[in-house]
Write a protein that binds this DNA or RNA. Structure first.
Lengths: 409, 409
DNA sequence: CTGTTAGCGCCTTCAC
DNA sequence: GTGAAGGCGCTAACAG
């Protein structure tokens, strides 16, 4: 009889604990209660403070606890019983290292943690590695925040929903039952492109953020766009294409200045060099339908980078080729990351409230956990004019058509 | 009778769940078993795969689960029963934002996550906010990694020890029962200082990493050193002082180029300006005992920054004052962070294997959880000569005493 | 103010 | 290959 359970078979069994049995059944609330001569529930109250208890009794309990070196309830048991662990899961799209290298991600994480204030227990970092997804389904947390995640999470989301785990998605596509915190990526991108257009640029290329799981620097093709799964880059591209229809360029492997540099070289040197460091095909200049004006597909006079990191790389590439920014080349970014080391440049970019996004997500989580039904949140970007955008070298300085350029396709 | 427990009082009670009761007692393994016409234990086997089960039976169970939208065991219950949650806690000294801005911390985190591979469940980020410490004591995790933490964690460590939670400390002081992963900070720092010395520098100042909880840029005083709680900065200082006895300078508020910049201005402009932007007292030059050679406490000819970020800031400060690096000023860092945007400079620094540190910690955690007793780990730094260190403008190029300079105190 | 009682959801030894 | 039961450690109703 009596199925003897030993959930902690580590000690005696495995390792050769040399010291004299430091764990003859780890002290438990029951043990403390017994030693203090009270019932477990009373002891529980002594620790949680929930319910009333005589000071004397509590002292007795606490002293017994001290003697037994009992420091408080086991978090695991507590979380089972209460149905709450205090942990908020943050699901990152990428390997941790990539996420951490992106100042926007970091800002968002900081915002979340600001609002959650670690009184909740902490942030559990998870990654959606695609296959398996196991960790996200088997991890202990009360609420989940998805950070720019792809639709492959569908199943995990279903599981969470079934478990009544509130979910918030930042910059992801819409999922039913998942609160959305997002940016006006498309509109902002249009505004930025319009800014470039108004300066007179007609030969323009884009360096886009990754659009799918395949992390590789390559020319932006229709297939890639068609199969894209990343909302942010898609929206930013769509926005720019409202001004520059058919805008072409490169897709980066990730948001890094190294990738921006490589793409920049391809775009700026590639026109002549043809087949530089990896990109096989074309996709330079204003791509398919170069807007009104010169249809000559020469070197672009402006490059729209979908992130500031990429933009920084592009600027470096330009300078390494002897081009001056913005005199010879206009470069604009996106994010407002305030990347240091840009020498004298003040990057022209769309500033997004990254930390605020995180804070909003954190607040939403709090409300959801309290049973509320907060609404979706939208943020707007603001144009930072900066000093890296100027009229093209040879263009008419005052062209100002505000309507989209028609596609030539 | 029958104390009716409802650990999840959220639904009906609080929020006005309008939809038709999506959670009439969330599906559980017992429910699945009943529906499949088997016992719970059999159903459990169907999910865990541990134990033998007829294929037909398993299919029946899985189908029943699908029908009930049961997606697998509840992580909370599982973790209580098994005594394992799969979560590894990472305790950061600072607010998340500070940690995330430090490339070394990020590299370490990446190393940890590489080795833990998220099959374990994920990294739980916790911060040692000093007061309370509650979150670390009440959070669910199986093992803890402390990242450069101060001794204020003593109590939390005691709790973890009592709970049999394996602990690994990276770059922290020694704690009993906590596996240590560390760097030869002191020795490396000495080597770097010697390098500077060998170049002929005698007027030297340090920009130190924070030494205690008070995050504020201020002159390095004896009190600060005496009360220091951060092992890394202490060790690096001690190492440098073996070459430059009594080395003085500033303590930064955190490892950032902004702080480096501010400290740089104080050190380089401060000698004349006296009381520039906040630092009241002296602490410039080679401090108390300016080493052999000129005892004139003028502007330093070399600045030893305790991190690359700080060094970058110092370089910017120097250049903003019209000083050329390294012709007019030698600047050395520590870390090997490869910070971008340093223009043409290649920072002279001690390169530390940060990712490796994280990996080692991750591996140690794995072994400890498996019941092993892995040893402490030590890593060495390598000097990267770089291009930001050169002989001082007016110094004899070939001074080469290898023994420490005696203190004048 | 304290004790009793009934599980949270699952796993696991033991018997069949 | 499957079923039956005990309990991980704790908390929340209720009764006294």
């Amino acid at each position: 009889m009596s199925a003897n359970n030993q959930p902690h078979p580590v000690d005696g069994a495995r390792s050769g604990e040399s010291a004299g049995a430091p764990d003859p059944s780890r002290s438990t609330l029951a043990g403390v209660a017994k030693r203090a001569g009270v019932s477990v529930s009373t002891a529980s109250i002594a620790f949680s403070g929930i319910g009333s208890i005589a000071t004397a009794t509590r002292d007795r309990v606490l002293q017994a606890a001290a003697e037994l070196r009992y420091f408080g309830p086991d978090p695991r048991a507590r979380s089972l019983r209460q149905g709450r662990s205090g942990i908020v899961g943050v699901v990152l799209e990428d390997r941790v290292i990539h996420s951490f290298r992106d100042p926007m991600t970091i800002a968002v994480l900081d915002g979340i943690s600001q609002e959650l204030g670690n009184e909740n227990g902490g942030l559990l970092l998870l990654t959606s590695t695609g296959i398996g997804e196991s960790s996200i389904q088997s991890a202990v947390f009360d609420a989940a925040v998805f950070l720019g995640c792809s639709p492959r999470l569908t199943r995990s989301i279903e599981v969470m929903r079934q478990r009544n785990v509130p979910m918030v998605a930042i910059e992801a596509q819409h999922f039913d039952g998942v609160l959305s915190v997002a940016l006006d990526n498309r509109e902002a991108s249009t505004r930025l492109a319009q800014h470039v257009y108004d300066l007179g640029h007609r030969e323009v290329a884009v360096v886009a953020l990754p659009m799918d799981a395949l992390r590789q620097l390559r020319p932006l093709t229709d297939e890639i766009v068609a199969d894209a799964t990343t909302a942010v880059s898609m929206d930013r591209l769509a926005g720019a294409r409202e001004v520059y229809a058919g805008l072409g360029g490169y897709v980066a492997a990730n948001s890094s200045s190294d990738d921006g540099f490589a793409a920049g070289l391809l775009l700026l040197g590639g026109a002549d060099v043809a087949g530089g460091a990896g990109g096989s095909g074309g996709a330079v200049g204003a791509g398919a339908g170069a807007g009104a004006g010169s249809s000559r597909r020469g070197r672009p006079t402006a490059i729209i980078a979908q992130s500031d990191l990429l933009a920084v790389g592009v600027i470096r590439a330009a300078e390494s080729l002897g081009l001056r920014v913005p005199a010879d080349l206009t470069v604009v970014g996106f994010d407002g990351a305030r990347i240091e080391g840009l020498s004298d440049h003040d990057l022209t970019t769309m500033v997004q409230p990254a930390t605020e996004k995180g804070r909003a997500a954190g607040r939403a989580v709090t409300e959801l956990l309290a049973g509320g039904h907060p609404p979706d949140v939208h943020f707007a970007c603001t144009l930072h004019p900066g000093t890296t955008a100027a009229p093209p070298p040879t263009a008419p300085p005052t062209a100002r058509p505000t309507s989209p350029v028609p596609t030539s396709t």
